[in-house]
């Protein structure tokens, strides 16, 4: 590849990505114009609730969208090249090699009929053309790397013989086998217990440094975001509503949705008197989204203006927010109760 040696500030740049699902007569815009950058060596989190389009965004990057879904627009620039221009065969060579992915359900993400060793070894066979013995040796090394005890024994076991945490370690071993530049982790710890989650997040962090990877972390868990990410994109109904560095997101959230989300999270670290602050209503039906700001029907500050879709506005600190409140046109209330204020 011509660009192999070139240095990029951003390993990944997503521009106006649009992925839709086509049912009988409606188009569901699961990802609707998503734009963000992933700086090299960093971890970017995409956080959102179900239906926000965060998982579809991640699957779109690897072009793993199945019918009736389709990427309908935008660009996915990986190391300077648009993945959407690649042939299927070129794309296949990138998957599991330069970009890898791990999924939410370690229980179901491994093939039950093959041993751990066969499944890790497959990656080496596909991308590095190694033979059985070489692949096995490297697979054992990989199992060691992800902290699986007695890898020589584990390698011949089947997935059902391993615990959930162990299986997720195996998934990580498969993903990292070919030393990818980018790891996409789609809710990697959601199905795991919290003590195991802590182990896995620690492992990903450690390997990221060791292998010089960039990570895109998809999660619904704000705590996980706070602990692992450098930058965060908050998604709601297929659109990014806020993008900033992780510190700013929690110290100074701007979008009313982000604020509401942080507030409604019951904390294990402090007592909240009385009711939890809530976001009223529920996520709108994806076939019938509001035409203006997607969050307007649930937003406590919404005005007439919100019937028009706001753009992502970037402030001086590169804090991007898709909300009219942060524009000059705004004339309504400016009191967005932040998390910090709630506690003061």
């Amino acid at each position: 590849m011509a660009n192999e040696s070139q240095n990029f500030d951003n390993i990944l740049e997503i521009k106006e990505l649009q992925t839709s699902f086509f049912t009988e007569d409606v188009e569901i815009k699961a990802v609707d114009g998503v734009t963000f950058d992933l700086p090299k060596g960093k971890t970017v989190g995409i956080v959102g609730e179900s239906g926000s389009g965060k998982s579809i965004t991640s699957l779109s990057i690897l072009r793993l969208i199945d019918r009736p879904g389709k990427i309908v627009g935008g660009e996915i620039i990986f190391k300077g090249e648009n993945l959407l221009d690649k042939s299927n065969e070129e794309m296949r060579k990138i998957r599991g090699n330069q970009i890898s992915m791990i999924f939410q359900e370690p229980m179901t993400s491994l093939n039950p009929t093959y041993t751990i060793g066969q499944q890790i070894g497959e990656a080496y066979k596909i991308h590095e053309g190694l033979n059985k013995a070489e692949a096995r040796k490297k697979s054992i090394d990989m199992l060691k790397l992800v902290g699986i005890p007695s890898p020589e024994k584990r390698i011949d076991q089947y997935p059902h013989e391993l615990s959930g945490g162990m299986r997720q370690r195996v998934m990580i071993a498969i993903a990292l086998a070919c030393n990818p530049d980018l790891l996409i982790a789609d809710e990697p710890t959601t199905a795991l217990d919290v003590t195991i989650q802590a182990q896995i997040l620690e492992l990903i962090k450690e390997l990221q440094e060791k292998l010089d990877m960039s990570v895109l972390l998809i999660t619904h868990d704000l705590g996980v975001v706070a602990e692992t990410c450098d930058y965060v994109a908050v998604m709601y109904c297929g659109k990014i509503v806020e993008y900033t560095d992780v510190k700013t997101l929690f110290s100074n959230p701007q979008h009313p949705y982000t604020v509401g989300l942080i507030n409604s999270l019951p904390s294990h670290e402090e007592d909240i008197e009385g009711d939890l602050p809530i976001i009223k209503g529920m996520v709108p039906n994806p076939t019938n989204l509001p035409s203006g700001c997607r969050f307007a029907p649930r937003c406590p500050y919404a005005t007439e203006l919100c019937n028009t879709l706001p753009e992502l506005v970037t402030d001086d600190n590169n804090h991007q927010t898709r909300c009219w409140i942060y524009t000059d046109e705004w004339n309504g209330s400016t009191e967005v109760k932040t998390y910090a204020e709630r506690n003061s």
Binding site: S50, H220, L261, S264, P266, I279, V283
Partner: peptide
């Protein structure tokens, strides 16, 4: 989801 969870807890 978190926002719905808060409603049900309340």
């Amino acid at each position: 989801d978190v926002s719905i969870q808060a409603q049900v807890i309340n």
